[in-house]
Amino acid sequence: MTEFDQLYREVILDHYKNPRGHGVMEHADAQAEGQNPFCGDEVSIYVSFGDDGDRIEDVKFSGRGCAISQAATSMLTEMVKGRSVVEIAELPKEELLEEIGIPLTPIRLKCAILGLGVLKVALHKAKGTPLPEEWAGLDELQLT
């Protein structure tokens, strides 16, 4: 595979062109927005919890960004649905990166994990889950 094919492989283009979970959620149980100051990209994440309050029932996202950030956030919404809040709060970024499955330069890495960072901030705000410095230290995650 050429570098080009790797970077914009079919699954990335599919999520980019047909993003899952794209939209705004009225009455979300948790919500946050963040920015990537390198490119000005913005993403808002909305979460609803299941009846027990411990599980992520649904996730939506809105905002603007590059193919990598849009596709990564789209994949993220599929990955986290039905999983426990605590588990996602602790989810290592490597799990998402593995799912994305393409080599990323440091700059593009920030695009890819923006949505995950904002999701963690949303959970932190709603549920008080720990926000490790790796994410909390990202000043661009401006809390709403």
């Binding site: 050429t2 570098e3 080009f4 970077l7 914009y8 390198f38 490119c39 000005g40 990209d41 603007r64 960004g65 590059c66 193919a67 990598i68 849009q70 593009r108 695009c111």
Partner: peptide, 21 residues
């Protein structure tokens, strides 16, 4: 099309432009 994607695709052909604010 987001500027990052434009710049990235051009880069793979050796063309360096800037994308951002």
């Amino acid at each position: 099309i987001h500027p990052h994607d434009v710049a990235q695709i051009l880069d793979l052909d050796g063309v360096a432009i800037r994308a951002g604010h």
